[in-house]
Design a protein around this nucleic acid. Sequence first.
DNA 1: CGTAGCCTTGAGGACCTTCAAGAGGAGTGG
DNA 2: CCACTCCTCTTGAAGGTCCTCAAGGCTACG
Lengths: 233, 233
Amino acid sequence: MTTLSHPFEQFAERVLPSTLGEDVRCGFHMLARCHPLAREASLDFAERSEQIVFVVRGATKLVAHASESRDQVVAFHFAGEVFTVPEPDNYSYSVCALRECELLTFASPEFLRLAEGEAEIMRQLLDSTKLSLRRCREKTIALGRKTAGERVAVFLLGMARRIGVEQDGRVALELPMSRRDISESLGLTIETVSRQLSKLKDDGVIETTGRSGIVLLDCPDLQRRAGFLKRTA
Amino acid sequence: MTTLSHPFEQFAERVLPSTLGEDVRCGFHMLARCHPLAREASLDFAERSEQIVFVVRGATKLVAHASESRDQVVAFHFAGEVFTVPEPDNYSYSVCALRECELLTFASPEFLRLAEGEAEIMRQLLDSTKLSLRRCREKTIALGRKTAGERVAVFLLGMARRIGVEQDGRVALELPMSRRDISESLGLTIETVSRQLSKLKDDGVIETTGRSGIVLLDCPDLQRRAGFLKRTA
DNA sequence: CGTAGCCTTGAGGACCTTCAAGAGGAGTGG
DNA sequence: CCACTCCTCTTGAAGGTCCTCAAGGCTACG
């Protein structure tokens, strides 16, 4: 259990090796910027370089702006996770708070200059980036080859693994994101997501409580609906 | 200009620092596996751990198998590039040769153990992974929020940047991949890709020579058709 | 020059989107 | 504590984009 410590301490514990020299550690501290974000508030990096973000607490979405009113949610990130925001090129990116949250950001070039020679830090960044890549590839597969029903099932299973609470075979979820966020993440419309969730409810695969509460009643069934490869066919 | 040297030498020059100790370097050499691949031949890592792949020469696609006859091309990779193949989970992955090519592969866990403490190598892997992540995110945006016409335009512009030959405003492309590969990369069918290319040809935006030759006549127009953000609106 | 396979083109149909209206939460003020 | 209101979510009907199925053309290669 971590006691409620300073944001940078939490980041250091997560990423920086304990053997790191005090001066270098201090350099990272100087570089860190703390952003308390209210619900729906967003950090826009349009003019700035690549950023490294640490989610101190709360939940966020990484959004790419494809054009006016066509946003794509690239990823969701929860407390304790580290991810990078690309510098803008064909698209501009922003980080948006799903709930009230606290972020720690670093300008990537400066961070990497400081971390030069620090294999352990590089390794941490590599692992975070590989995890992001893995999730992004799975999303690519979902968006490229799956139907609306499959995508929603994939989404629910993924969220269950990340923020679900299991009890006797059922998994309870408290989704921090709206239907709009879900639809923009899955490449669908809000209406289609709603219809698919209703269908799952009618079929007895899930239960919903209020707007954000979802209980997965039959995960094996969801697995089938997700269109994954059969394990050991 | 690199002379035609041993595959591992090319990899070392690309990834390993020149200051690296001879024993460690030798360890990487022991770990390397060389795969000459004929056209259409594929490397299947279904049973094995995460892999690091270096494309010595040729061109490859990274394919995810979503289910029988539903493959998604996750990425294309050309000579000199480094990328990782995830260990199988919900999907299984394989690397397939678009043209005759030569690959060097490393089991990722062993590679990282050897590279422990070598910040420079970690940095190289981090940069490769970030590039893959960047491309994957752009693909996600394309698959989630773009029409067939936009996706094809994005694809052509991306390929032009990677393997195009520019001469007086026009860009000549020799696509190493088939229409099927393109369609499986863009989340479309082979017919739709063909129709979109025909439309571009009719509109005078591109010219085609044979099956694989494409000349981009009007890149600004393609940019518009790609649905990117306007730069400095 | 002939053949096999890839690519192109066309017609019909499915899935998802768009447009529209109504239901239900969540928060606020009385 | 309850009613009110706003906004999100849900549900329905019509339409569009892309897919499926099918046939013909062309390229590349033997």
